[in-house]
Design a protein around this nucleic acid. Structure first.
Length: 850
RNA sequence: GCCCCUGUGGCGAAAUUGGUAGACGCGACCGACUCAAAAUCGGUUGCCGCAAGGCAUGCUGGUUCGAGUCCGGCCAGGGGCACCA
């Protein structure tokens, strides 16, 4: 009996698959097509366990679909533009391109080592001109269709480094390198009109049956359709040429509870006031403090400044409301102005409490109807309108309609739909991204770059010695002649958001001609992606942008697909305990000093210490593997130790794929033991190959497993498929030699093949299987073997289990009832009392109510 | 601050979607094999109890003949928030 030599088998079969191009997808295959895709990785350096888990799941599905007779497209590529390459350039004095390509080479080798059934002939990297040049062409198409425009928008500005910062680079309101307090600064930037598709993107969610509900709900909330009233307040006096201010509200019903009007700091009225009044100017300046992220803005202290302007209530011109400039009002949402109803909006409540503004109840809460409001927080629930003139007695929805009707009849407002979704700002003031193919000419304005000038390539000779965009500082790159008038002009030096790169890569995988972004007919053969797999962290942005991009292409007639991903699966993270010691700096500040798992040993009582010493180490939380916590485990080391199949098996075992998986040494060892156990079954087959006779029980278990594993893989419930394989292996091991057992072992190789493909190929070859097991069909199920003729019936008294009965399947209700009532334990429990009621669920249970 | 998710033995989990809670794996314990160890194989393992039995799915209240599953309130942990990818 031999041991399975995983390292040898891995290398051998990976070479065979490569040489035969087993997993190259054939566009012209007559088979039904299936497109399985995992989110492509950012080439950050090395593969991490999260990648291994993600790609193993996709791989099992891809291999399974192949066995089921599909022509499968399962490609891989690199989301290769992004900030880390520029950071590496600054810190390690390397070129972003060289750094990225090196990472790609490393990570590709690591992926190949895991034996994924990938079509490497379609590999692409978004940082190559082949790819981003076609992206520039698509950007021009969008521009010509009116889906691209330019507007001012706020960025995080580091006043010391004089550079734009990503939200990630703002830590506690300060620039991560300079430590300077960050402020919001306006910049003219490129935007894509995603809001034009807001309704379509929302409606489209209904058709996505194979998406998780939670992701659909998150997108729905993100798009944030709300119906409301847009209306004008008359102002006492004129400011910036305006004698009115337009506000939007989703709660027009509460209009009689309003006690102030608030406008954004960058509202035109606020700007005009600031120009004339230094006090206002100072306040507007104060509102610019801090970064642009929602979390930061919304947790900031609420600040307001009374402008002295008064607004007339639309239903009572004698009722004057103060107009404030407030830092929590966003210019980007609605009209940049709101009216405040403190009793029924928490933010307004806090604001009114702080500035001593009236708080009036206008919606009843239970029996509370008086206008005086004494609660500690706003009431936002349902109720009846009170203290509201003609609205009194209506419920909230009726009152909303009534106010909108009056406003429209009176000509001072209209019922409107507004969206939380904002247009997509794609300009980035950075080098390592797709250059935006636009030219700025003093005479002609913005001019698109001519198609024949594409790809507009990034210059290679750039320096990262000083902060800021190297493209802007480059001596020659941005200087071009205007395509229209021929005079000297300036190239756009902003690059595209990397989310643009990932918004269409799945189309380019399906078809990648040299002269255009994709071939419509070929791409449509594969699209939409049948199953897309990736992290939940992409539930909103990436997935929404890709949906938008696909719809935009559809809108332009370039593709007959509206939704890019028919099926979506969001997988959990790979986690591990972190280990640290508390270190105190000279100033007395405590900080955690992390250690790698390989440096740690455990004592019997669970405490940990540094290997080779007796220094105690604190065992921290089990959390996402990350370099900063040093709790990562390098997959390649593990694969070299245990083989690809054991790693794959572990990634699929135990934890449901949508939940987090905790990496453990014992887990991978368990997986390795199972691989060896499987091998012993295959290897031992020769000794009893000519065994005869049927084993009906084992036949049943086998066919149950074939059906069950198929169902579980199709549902991506890999942990359940794994459990079913364990059960089958347990059953086979316990069975006596027979023809049934021999058949079960041979079939087992095929059922396990998608998960442990190297072992399966080795076994298949040893058993004299024809061709590759990768090309073998999934075994057929005999439906007759799936039915049981006997069932176990639970017998309950008052819902508590007292007995079980084994009865023929389909036994009549009265038979079951009689058998249940006759059971010893039931008689004892009833203690002579007559049952009040008996509930019988055929083939399942009898519940006696006493 | 806003949106979303999760919570079941010592641990990862399963439960045909309202019908026998704990399949399967890990760990632990006992035993076989061995000079010994590893590997392997067999057994035990939710908690309390000698047993009969009772108690158990984060806490709490409800609906139901019956709740891990449905509804209300709370607690804890996690993900996202538009320039991280």
């Amino acid at each position: 009996m031999s041991r399975f030599n995983a390292l040898k088998a891995d290398a051998h079969w990976q070479k065979v698959w490569d040489d035969r191009r087993t997993f190259a997808a054939d566009d012209s295959s007559p088979k039904p097509k299936s497109y399985v895709l995992e989110m492509f990785p950012y080439p950050s350096g090395r593969i991490h366990m999260g990648h291994v888990r993600n790609y193993t799941m996709g791989d099992v599905l891809a291999r399974f679909r192949r066995m089921r007779g599909f022509e499968v497209l399962h490609p891989m590529g690199w989301d290769a533009f992004g900030m880390p390459a520029e950071n590496a350039a600054m810190e390690k004095k390397v070129h972003p391109r060289g750094w990225t390509l090196e990472n790609i080479a490393t990570m590709k080798a690591q992926l190949k080592r895991l034996g994924f059934a990938l079509d490497w002939t379609r590999e692409l990297a978004t940082c190559e001109p082949d790819y981003y040049g076609q992206e520039q062409a698509l950007f021009l198409d969008l521009y010509e269709s009116g889906l691209v425009y330019r507007k001012e928008s706020a960025v995080n500005w580091d006043p010391v480094d004089m550079t734009v910062l990503a939200n990630e680079q703002v830590i506690d309101g300060r620039g991560w390198r300079s430590g300077a307090l960050v402020e919001r600064r306006k910049l003219s930037q490129w935007f894509l009109k995603i809001t034009q598709f807001a309704d379509d993107l929302l409606e489209g969610l209904n058709g996505l049956e194979h998406w998780p509900d939670k992701v659909k709900l998150m997108q729905e909330n993100w798009i944030g359709k709300s119906e409301g009233l847009q209306f004008r307040f008359k102002l006492n006096g004129e400011t910036a040429g305006a004698d009115e201010v337009e506000v939007f509200t989703t709660r027009p019903d509460t209009i009689f509870g309003s006690s102030f009007v608030a406008i954004a700091a960058d509202h035109p009225i606020a700007q005009a006031l600031a120009a004339a009044d230094p006090e206002v100017a100072a306040f507007v300046e104060l509102c610019k403090a801090g970064g642009t992220s929602a979390a930061e803005i919304e947790t900031q202290e609420k600040l307001g400044l009374d402008t002295g302007i008064r607004a007339s209530h639309p239903f009572d011109s004698n009722w004057q409301l103060p107009v404030y400039i407030a830092n929590f009002v966003l210019m980007d949402y609605g009209t940049g102005a709101v009216f405040g109803v403190p009793a029924h909006d928490q933010r307004d409540f806090e604001f009114a409490s702080k500035y001593g503004l009236p708080i009036r109840r206008v919606v009843s809460e239970g029996d509370k109807t008086a206008p005086e409001f004494h609660d500690a927080e706003a009431y936002t629930g349902p109720g009846t309108l009170v203290n509201s003139h003609f609205l009194d007695g209506m419920d909230v929805p009726d009152a909303k309609r009534a106010v909108i009707t009056r406003a429209e009849a009176g000509g001072w407002g209209t019922g409107t739909t507004v969206w939380r979704l904002r247009d997509w700002g794609v300009s980035r003031q950075r080098y390592w991204g797709t250059p935006i193919p636009m030219i700025h000419c003093e005479g002609c304005g913005v001019v698109p770059a001519p198609r024949e000038s594409l790809p507009i390539e990034l210059p290679q000779d750039v320096s990262f010695d000083v902060p800021g965009n190297p493209l802007d500082r480059h001596a020659t790159w941005k200087h071009v002649d205007c395509p229209k008038c021929g005079k000297p002009a300036r190239r756009e030096t902003d690059t595209l958001d990397t989310f643009v790169d990932s918004s269409w890569y799945f189309i380019r995988f399906a078809s990648q001609p040299k002269d255009k972004p994709f071939d419509k007919a070929i791409a449509e053969q594969w699209l939409p992606v049948g199953q897309y797999i990736g992290g939940v962290e992409h539930a909103i942005l990436h997935l929404l942008y890709a949906r938008f991009w696909t719809r935009a292409l559809n809108h332009m007639g370039m593709i007959d697909v509206t939704e890019p991903f028919a099926g979506l699966f969001t997988q959990g993270m790979v986690t591990h305990a972190s280990y640290y010691q508390i270190e105190e700096s000279a100033e007395g500040v405590e900080r955690k000093l992390y250690f790698e798992p390989s440096q740690i040993a455990r004592r019997g009582d669970g405490t940990a210490f540094l290997t080779g010493t007796d220094e105690d180490v604190i065992v921290g939380r089990v959390e996402k593997m990350s370099k900063s916590k040093k709790n990562t485990v390098d997959p390649t080391e593990i694969v070299d130790q245990y083989g690809a199949d054991a790693v794959r098996w572990f990634m699929l075992s135990d934890s449901p794929p949508e939940r987090d998986l905790e990496w453990s040494e014992s887990g991978i060892e368990g997986a390795w033991r199972f691989v060896q156990r499987l091998w012993r079954l295959f290897d031992g087959l020769a000794e009893c190959a000519d065994a005869e006779g049927a084993d009906k029980d084992l036949d049943k278990k086998l066919h149950r497993a074939i059906a069950g594993v198929a169902q579980d893989i199709e549902a991506l419930s890999f942990n359940k498929a794994v459990a079913k394989l364990y059960e089958l292996v347990n059953a086979i091991e316990r069975a006596q030699p027979s023809a049934s057992r021999t058949a079960a072992v041979r079939t087992l190789a095929r059922i396990a093949a998608p998960m442990v493909p190297h072992l399966a190929e080795e076994a298949w070859a040893a058993m004299g299987g024809e061709g590759l097991i990768a090309d073998a069909p999934w075994p057929e199920v005999d439906p007759a073997l799936l039915v049981d003729d006997e069932v176990t019936i639970a017998v309950q008294v008052n819902g508590k289990l007292r007995h079980t009965l084994v009865m023929p399947k389909g036994s009549a209700k009265d038979v079951l009832e009689a058998a249940a009532l006759a059971a010893d334990n039931v008689v004892r429990t009833l203690d002579g009392k007559a049952p009040k009621k008996v509930i019988v669920v055929p083939d399942r249970l009898v519940n006696i109510v006493a």
